[in-house]
């Protein structure tokens, strides 16, 4: 519910004042009577004498409410334009469980950081079709390019390390993303690969996939997730229980750079959550969208209120002309 001119509601305060002023003049009386006994004998007038006054005040109130212009809030804007087709490819291999992504107060795993960054990236581009490929030993189309953001956010939240196998089929993932994008209707087609670069499984290698991407007009951006230092892994040891193990999980910068170069995009290194955010912002500017939000009009309640006021005032005029005629 929105109100176009809330200041007009102040007029409602004027109504009691006018009522009071009008009653004072009306109380002066119109006709002098020599004897009041018959009038007194008739007793108190019935409540219906207030009906015309109430109708008239109600009609005025509704007219003032109509002037204030209430309306139902406009619905969500519609996005017009071709938009961009984007596939996010996210690594689910074991190395993504490394807890080396620093946020301001805590350290989270690479996968959690990537999921958060991807969700933020998607919400910053509401008019573009975004899909998701998850890969481990194999690559899976989780979501085709779609405008449905709630599905994407849910899928990102459900990603688990190791759900797709222990290895990394990065070439397959990029190829799958290219397949999903190949017939996209968008202004441009973009694949973003989040991973640590060491591809050791799959049908085709990352370079071949990047070349295929270029052949299909898909720009490839790669984001190297994680630092070079030995990273903490939370391990469930069968005897010792949950413990933290430090292990090196370096990012293969060269492979990712080569992929991005062959695919006509850029490589970004993200050693912490802020780095991921920077990479997302950079991709945002490098692959601009043409979709524009068209604000949708709400539904105005003013005509209905005005009509109701007209009805009430007409009935007041009828009553005031017949049963409740006032003199002079």
């Amino acid at each position: 519910m929105v109100v176009a001119h809330p200041l007009a509601l102040l007029l409602l305060l004027a109504l009691p004042a006018i009522w009071f002023a009008r009653n004072r003049t009306a109380r002066l009386g119109a006709l002098g009577l020599p004897d009041l006994t018959t009038a007194r004998a008739a007793g108190r007038p019935s409540l219906t004498v207030f009906l015309p006054g109430v109708l008239r005040a109600l009609g005025l109130t509704l007219a003032i409410l109509a002037l204030a212009g209430p309306g139902l809030a406009p619905t969500e804007p519609v996005y017009r334009g071709q938009g961009v087709d984007i596939m996010l490819a996210i690594d689910l291999s074991e190395s993504m469980a490394a807890m080396d992504m620093r946020q301001t107060e805590r350290t989270i795993t690479r996968l959690e950081a990537v999921a958060e960054a991807a969700a933020r990236f998607a919400s910053s581009r509401p008019g573009d079709r975004i899909g998701l490929v998850a890969f481990g030993s194999r690559a899976y189309t989780v979501i085709p390019p779609t405008l449905d953001r709630s599905v994407l956010t849910q899928a990102l939240a459900r990603l688990e390390v190791g759900a797709a196998g222990r290895k990394t089929a990065m070439g397959d993932a990029l190829g799958l993303a290219v397949k999903r994008l190949a017939q996209g209707p968008g202004l441009s087609r973009v694949a973003v690969v989040f991973g640590d670069g060491r591809s050791n499984a799959g049908e085709i290698d990352p370079q071949t996939a990047a070349e295929a991407a270029a052949a299909h007009g898909v720009r490839v951006f790669t984001v190297g997730v994680g630092g070079d230092e030995p990273a903490a892994f939370l391990v469930n040891h069968p005897l010792l229980g949950r413990q933290i193990v430090y292990e090196k999980a370096p990012v293969d910068t060269e492979a990712l750079t080569a992929m991005a170069r062959l695919g006509g995009g850029e490589f970004f290194r993200a050693e912490d959550a802020a780095g991921l955010a920077r990479a997302g912002a950079a991709i945002d500017t490098l692959a601009p969208s043409d979709s524009v939000a068209v604000p949708q009009a709400g539904v105005s309640l003013a005509p209905g209120l005005a009509a109701l006021a007209v009805g009430l005032l007409t009935s007041w005029a009828g009553l005031a002309a017949t049963r409740f005629l006032r003199l002079p």
Binding site: A134, Y140, T141, G175, K179, A182, G202, E203, I204, A212
Partner: peptide
């Protein structure tokens, strides 16, 4: 897709859960 290289990739739908 109509691409022999890409068609070598198995098409696996759905969440890898």
């Amino acid at each position: 897709a109509n691409d022999p290289v890409l068609n070598r990739i198995p098409d696996l739908p759905g969440p890898p859960a």
